[in-house]
């Protein structure tokens, strides 16, 4: 049993099939295109959708950046980078500005993206209505006929209970004033970055075998109500490393009493910011 793998692992026919799905996804913003997802050597739920998108898009000239939770150095990001180094011999970068292709889990980089860049999201549950209606034939109809009332009801129930919308991540959006879409489990802090982004935003759900996209310069609206507008998380304090107040901050527990400090989730942004503010 000798095994030699194709460039970027997938065979050419699989790439073709995925590429066709990507084009349809761009043509129908926010619509979940079913595709013949392949089994990858990484487990489902660990980024197989994103990996298949990256494998179908990537070429020898690409500069690939992989992040998980905003960090270039978390275990899953490392594992995916190794995969593409091994199967495609691809150049890896941590620099958001020079990366041509960025695969991410749960964050959008703080550094604004540019025209021509591609951001690939790993998506665990692509269906924004999954927890309202788990049956696929039903949700297909709800998307087809724009029956999104149940989602508004769910958000309104939050307001009745908490006085505000309680969804903190994977906050649902409407794309191009048509499809309701899951932005993947990014914090709602990142939702505004989806709106009219100059970059190409691709979403891959491997286990659920669906691909969707937001083309550049496309309206992406987070669901809300006139009297209860969409609002972002904010923190009392700044990043303990770089001092930023303009980024998503993670809490780090520093002792047994639960004392905590705040630190940028985007490690590359933090390092650059620290370098420029404290030369």
């Amino acid at each position: 049993m000798t095994v030699s793998y194709n460039f970027a692992y997938l065979d050419e026919q699989s790439k073709k099939m995925i590429r066709r799905a990507i084009l349809k996804a761009l043509a129908i913003p926010g619509f979940q295109v079913p595709f013949g997802g392949r089994e990858m050597p990484l487990p489902y739920g660990w980024g197989t959708g994103g990996i298949q998108l990256t494998a179908s898009v990537i070429g020898p000239d690409d500069q690939l950046k992989v992040i998980d939770q905003g960090s270039d150095d978390t275990v899953n990001a490392i594992s995916i980078k190794h995969f593409f180094q091994k199967t495609a011999g691809i150049a890896i970068t941590e620099d958001t500005e020079t990366a041509t292709l960025i695969q991410t889990r749960h964050r959008i980089p703080e550094t604004p993206l540019k025209k021509g860049q591609i951001l690939v999201f790993q998506v665990p549950i692509p269906e924004p209505l999954q927890f309202i209606e788990p049956k696929r034939p039903q949700t297909l109809k709800m998307h087809g006929y724009e029956e999104y009332g149940s989602m508004h009801v769910k958000l309104y129930e939050d307001i009745a209970r908490f006085g505000r919308i309680a969804t903190a991540f994977d906050y649902p959006v409407r794309v191009h004033h048509r499809y309701l879409m899951s932005p993947s489990p990014i914090p709602k802090y990142d939702n505004p970055k989806l709106h009219r982004s100059p970059a190409v935003l691709l979403f891959g759900a491997g286990r659920e075998k669906r691909i969707y996209a937001i083309p550049p310069y496309t309206d992406v609206v987070s669901l809300d109500f006139e009297d209860y507008p969409f609002e972002l998380e904010h923190w009392e304090g700044a990043c303990a490393v770089c001092g930023s107040t303009q980024s998503f901050l993670d809490e780090i527990i520093t002792d047994d009493n639960g004392t905590r400090v705040l630190i940028c989730s985007d490690t590359e942004f933090c390092r650059k910011n620290a370098g420029s503010s404290q030369p």
């Binding site: 460039f7 590429r19 084009l23 761009l26 043509a27 898009v57 190409v200 083309p215 550049p216």
Partner: peptide
């Protein structure tokens, strides 16, 4: 792959 990237850009 090269053609597809141009096509992806064109569609985007």
């Amino acid at each position: 792959q090269a053609v597809f990237r141009h096509l992806l850009d064109a569609m985007a």
